[in-house]
């Protein structure tokens, strides 16, 4: 008896299922070993290399290269870009998924497909279309010039390109979630006399909270890290239209390896924070859906 309990404990520790429904030990451990080696070689080592290179000339050099005026301005521009792109896509994402999941209308499937467009096209194209559209010789170029509005090779262009590229993240997260949740709760709220906004704020939003946060985190990560689209539209003016990813390239091309990797290390830190937050949101999200499922099961039929 005691032996069996111990064995079950070990099995649980090793996440082992009963032998009959699993692979032999050797196969499992080889698979795990291969995965870890792969991840180690292709993910962890390069990440470690970023930090080693950044700190190659010591901590003082590291911080001095970050305190550079152009670097600070690149950091500021990246923050501004994300600060605009993320809320815009948050509002759009919630609106779009609300419309798609809760209502029937003509052209719904077209809209769903269009939302995925930025995932499908190369970021270079995303940048180029804005240059074609708003550039001096683009369709709107002459008008913009006449009214002294700068879009391409200026901050608005960078923000636009980023919004475009990060467009699908929130909506993509929410649509399946809202579709799965159906419209019963909203209908119930409406029959109980709640207004539209009230229903949204008190019923829909709490239901999608963690999915929404998850989408926002991913959206933010991409907004800060986007290179291709922004590179096309930025004009690469130091201290003015350089975002962090572009600045990494510029510093690298200037043989300033400590500076380049120092900025890269900041982006890496953002990525790591993103991963932690993402895992947390995922965990919360799962926990709540389990809870919700249990509640439903517990209700008298």
């Amino acid at each position: 008896m005691a032996q069996r309990t111990l064995r079950r404990k070990i099995e649980r520790f090793l996440w082992r299922k009963p032998r009959a429904i699993t692979e032999p030990l050797v196969v499992r451990w080889t698979a795990i070993a291969i995965t870890f080696t792969f991840i180690g070689l292709f993910l962890v080592l390069p990440l470690a290399a970023i930090f080693t290179q950044a700190l190659a000339s010591g901590l003082t050099a590291y911080f001095r290269s970050l305190w550079d005026t152009d670097t600070l301005s690149a950091i500021r521009l990246t923050l501004i870009t994300a600060a605009v792109a993320v809320p815009v896509n948050l509002v759009f994402g919630v609106a779009a998924s609300w419309a798609i999941a809760k209502f029937e209308f003509l052209g719904k499937s077209v809209l769903t497909t269009l939302i995925d467009l930025p995932f499908a096209v190369s970021p270079v194209i995303s940048g180029t279309i804005y240059v074609l559209f708003f550039g001096l010789h683009g369709y709107l170029g002459p008008w913009l010039k006449a009214h002294n509005i700068e879009i391409v090779f200026a901050v608005p262009g960078i923000v636009l390109a980023t919004v475009f590229v990060t467009f699908p993240f929130v909506a993509r997260e929410l649509i399946p979630l809202m579709q799965a949740q159906g419209t019963e709760e909203e209908e119930a709220a409406l029959t109980l006399g709640a207004g539209g906004w009230q229903t949204f704020a008190r019923v829909t939003l709490p239901n999608i909270k963690w999915g929404l946060i998850y989408g926002v985190i991913l959206c933010n990560a991409r907004a800060m890290g986007e290179f291709g689209a922004v590179s096309v539209i930025s004009g690469h003016i130091r201290g003015l239209t350089n975002t962090m990813p572009l600045h990494v390239e510029i510093l690298y091309n200037e043989y300033n390896f400590v500076g380049a990797f120092a900025v890269a290390s900041l982006l890496t830190v953002v990525a790591m924070i993103t991963l932690v937050l993402k895992s947390f949101a995922e965990w919360k999200f799962k926990e709540e859906s389990v809870q919700a499922a249990e509640e439903v099961e517990g209700l008298p039929q």
Partner: peptide, 20 residues
Amino acid sequence: VRQSHGGAGKQARAVMDGLE
């Protein structure tokens, strides 16, 4: 004085497209 650097052809293209 602000600087922008890149391949010469690309830079000329950017000026034509409105890089001021």
